[in-house]
Amino acid sequence: MINTYIEMVPALLNGAKITIEVLVLSLIFTYIIAFIAGLGKLSKFRAIRVVCTIYIEIFRGTSLLVQLFWIYFVLPFFGIEFSALTAGVIAMSLCYGAYASEVVRGAILSIPKGQTEAAIALNMTPFQRMMKIIIPQAFKIMLPGFGNLSIELMKGTSLVSLITLGDLTYQSLTLRNTNVAHTTEIFVALLVIYFIIALPLIVLARWLERRASLGRV
């Protein structure tokens, strides 16, 4: 049995590399998009608000796998062709970015009006008010939500296996095809590896949650 696990190691390591690559890239773009769309939905310009709302509702209203398939299989129809990795990162970032933008917006709206008023009274520009006063306070409120979304995103990376990207899940399915007798070992190992990848995110998310519930100083 130990031999079985050792034979699996190179393929799973390769898969883990891809999974982490997709995870890290998607996390970065998710939170960039989250701030753009979250702030955009609060813009004083109606057109920007409408565009952001449509984006958020479409990506929250359909499912990640459908979006992934659409980007990977449909866009080539319009002459836009992505590698599986790029398509995966784009779909994940757009989908989780839509959810995260609601975290951003909610946190910004939760800052008391008096803070904006004090900033106006000190004659700060709208940009300064946002960057110096509102966002620094709102950011702390966003963190627990970001932590939990990051765990969700990590789990979502497994879907890229369905567009043939060689991540952990894909490698395991391939391994299983050639070692059907070891199906149990392969999937137990797979679940454990995902759990190990999730562990730092869980610890971080729980810590952020606890800190937030203690109140901010």
Partner: peptide
């Protein structure tokens, strides 16, 4: 269960 992908759990139930 919450920290691992539902897709993998699906494979687990179906194949294991």
């Amino acid at each position: 269960i919450r920290a691992t992908p539902p897709l993998v759990q699906l494979f687990f139930v179906f194949y294991v």
